[in-house]
């Protein structure tokens, strides 16, 4: 029973991370039907910058917003130079490769300047675990699922209640019509990538005390976050968060009752099966093919 609660809690923590990363993919995908394939690296960028500022003596309360802002700038750059010039319709893969290339450069640069070994970003909430029904968890870890849900609510509100958000939604649904109605599609794309990267940096900083900071910290999270977004169906934010949590918990339970290798084999196997059963994702809308 304790183990059951423990796996669920741990699963919600890692699943919350998948969900936040996946939400970043969702924001980008909605705007331009393309993503920053190196989105995982924005997690790394955000937390590396936060640590670097901390080392330079900047208090974290100032350093963290600075790091997030800088990552948003990185997102703008990615959209402008790596995605926009190479995104020509559904079968183009140029943006995939250009963003991967930039991700490689960023990782290499950080490895050289920051070092390859893992470093820590301290959090006062990582001191001692608290007990919930016999299962232990650090208070800081609880922030992750809470943040995932809060971000979802924020995103929901933003898309529904603000002009900017509505304009973005219009683009996501009918890009051509939105353009005809005078919505600046390009500006929205830039904003989306900046927002996604800021979100990524935030996720990285939030995760840093739990998973530590290194040049390659975002790789696996980025990949799994992307897979989660796809299984959920790229068009549904709520579905993405639910899938993120579910996948995190599933992983922990496979680990608990099987082992780590089974985790990857079964986890990815389930992904393939789900995509076969729900070709547009679990929560995705069917894209009608009109003759």
């Amino acid at each position: 029973m304790t183990a059951f609660v423990q796996y669920t809690l741990s699963g919600l923590v890692i699943g919350g991370l998948y969900a936040i990363v996946a939400l970043g993919f969702y924001i980008m995908w909605s705007a331009v039907r393309a993503v920053n394939f190196a989105h995982g690296d924005t997690l790394m960028l955000g937390s590396v910058l936060a640590i670097a500022l901390m080392w330079a003596g900047v208090p974290l309360l100032v350093g963290i917003p600075l790091a997030i802002a800088a990552s948003a700038g990185f997102g703008l750059l990615i959209e402008r130079i790596a995605v926009r010039p190479l995104n020509h319709g559904p079968s183009s893969v140029g943006w995939m490769l250009s963003t991967i290339a930039i991700g490689l450069m960023l990782e290499a640069f950080v490895t050289i300047t920051f070092g390859a070994d893992p470093r820590s970003l301290p959090s006062p909430l990582m001191g001692a675990p608290i007990s919930i029904a016999g299962a232990g968890i650090f208070p800081h870890e609880l922030l992750v699922p809470v943040a995932a849900v809060a971000l979802l609510a924020l995103l929901d509100w933003f898309y529904r209640a603000t002009m900017l958000g509505r304009a973005m939604r219009a683009i996501a649904q009918k890009p051509v019509a939105a353009g005809l109605m005078g919505i600046d599609v390009r500006r929205m794309a830039l904003i989306s990538f900046a927002a996604a990267s800021a979100l990524g940096a935030f996720a990285g900083i939030l995760a840093a005390p739990i998973i530590q900071v290194s040049a390659t910290m975002g790789l696996l999270l980025g990949l799994k976050g992307f897979l989660v977004a796809i299984i959920a169906g790229m068009s549904n934010a709520r579905g993405i968060v639910i899938t993120g949590f579910a996948y995190g918990v599933l992983e922990r339970f496979i680990e608990g009752f099987g082992n780590t290798s089974l985790r990857e084999v079964l986890g990815f196997g389930v992904m393939i099966l789900l995509l076969l059963m729900f070709p547009n994702g679990l929560f995705g809308q069917r894209e009608v093919n009109k003759v």
Binding site: I81, A82, P85, L86, G94, L97, S98, I100, A101, I102, G103, L104, M105, E107, A108, F109, T111, I112
Partner: peptide, 20 residues
Amino acid sequence: GKWQLFVYGALLASVIFFLP
């Protein structure tokens, strides 16, 4: 040396940009 991964990425990026 240490920069080879960086240069590799830069090379790829420029090929993709200039020879799509």
